[in-house]
Amino acid sequence: MAYDPQTPAPPEAPDVAQVLRVNYLSLAKLIALRLLITAVLVAIPVAADRLLGLDSPFLMLFTVAGVGAFVLTVHRLIYGIRVSQCARVLRDYPLEFHPRVIKKRERWTQYGNVYEVRVTTRGQHGAPLMLAVNAPGRRRWPEGVEEGAWLAGDLPFGGVLVVPGSNAMLFLKPADWDKTARKREEAGAERTARAQRAKLNKKTKYAVMMRSGA
């Protein structure tokens, strides 16, 4: 992207390998914490029976809660892994700095918070509204992303935002897939083939934004 003298220079481009390592580790910690909570809930009735001699039917509620937590953890792991999807995008697309990311709305879903954002490009108008989710499954909006972020991808298809200085990573898809269909049709064979390699050529909705391959 070209910058005029009044435009601040972009920050240093992030190390893609480091960004992926941090996000894989973040996902692993999230799953490990959920599994620990599951183990504690299941262990409470057993410990109460063996150590205190308590045998109350109410203690079984902890077991039920533990099983429920485990099911939700597996469910989140299956539908929550976006880091590998982001890795494919980062492999096929170079990083390009965009000076401003505007968050419009935020929605809660069982798969993670989904944000409606607009990634602006200096000198261009009509940037499509995008849906974004935190790649490793956390619900926190990354700090500092409004001041600009590195984009890998092709907005009519989707992409990945990497926040400078934090290694936070957001997976993007167009908010209105049908509305951006014309731009994809006009993309040309090379852009379309690249989007197919990165698996960005399929429609998705906010409720399943974190489903693998969606």
Rank of each mutant, 00 (worst) to 15 (best):
M1L: 06
M1D: 06
A2T: 03
Y3P: 00
Y3N: 02
T7Q: 07
P8D: 01
P8H: 05
P11Y: 03
A13R: 11
P14W: 00
V16A: 15
V22D: 10
V22Y: 14
V22W: 10
N23S: 09
S26E: 07
A28P: 02
K29A: 12
I31Y: 11
I31C: 02
I31S: 02
L33W: 12
L36T: 15
L36A: 15
A39D: 10
A39K: 01
A43D: 10
A43C: 14
A43T: 14
I44N: 01
V46S: 04
A47N: 12
A47V: 12
A48L: 03
G53K: 01
G53C: 04
L54Q: 08
L54S: 07
F58P: 05
V64W: 13
A65L: 12
V67R: 14
F70T: 05
L72F: 00
H75Y: 11
I78S: 01
Y79I: 13
I81Q: 09
R82Y: 09
R82L: 14
V83C: 11
S84D: 14
Q85P: 08
C86L: 13
A87C: 07
R88F: 12
V89L: 07
V89N: 06
L90T: 02
L90R: 08
D92Q: 15
P94R: 06
L95A: 10
F97D: 00
F97E: 00
H98M: 12
R107L: 03
Q110L: 08
N113A: 04
R118D: 15
T120W: 03
T121A: 13
G123V: 01
H125E: 15
G126W: 12
A127H: 07
A127Q: 13
P128C: 09
L129G: 05
M130L: 09
A132R: 03
V133G: 13
R138A: 13
R139T: 10
R139I: 06
R139F: 09
G144Y: 11
V145D: 04
G148D: 09
G148V: 02
A149Q: 02
A149S: 04
W150G: 00
W150E: 01
A152T: 04
F157P: 00
A168Q: 15
L170D: 10
L170T: 14
F171T: 04
F171K: 00
A175Y: 14
A181T: 05
K183H: 11
R184H: 09
E185S: 11
A195I: 07
A198Y: 15
L200P: 04
N201A: 15
K203R: 13
Y206C: 02
A207H: 13
V208P: 06
G213I: 01
G213S: 08
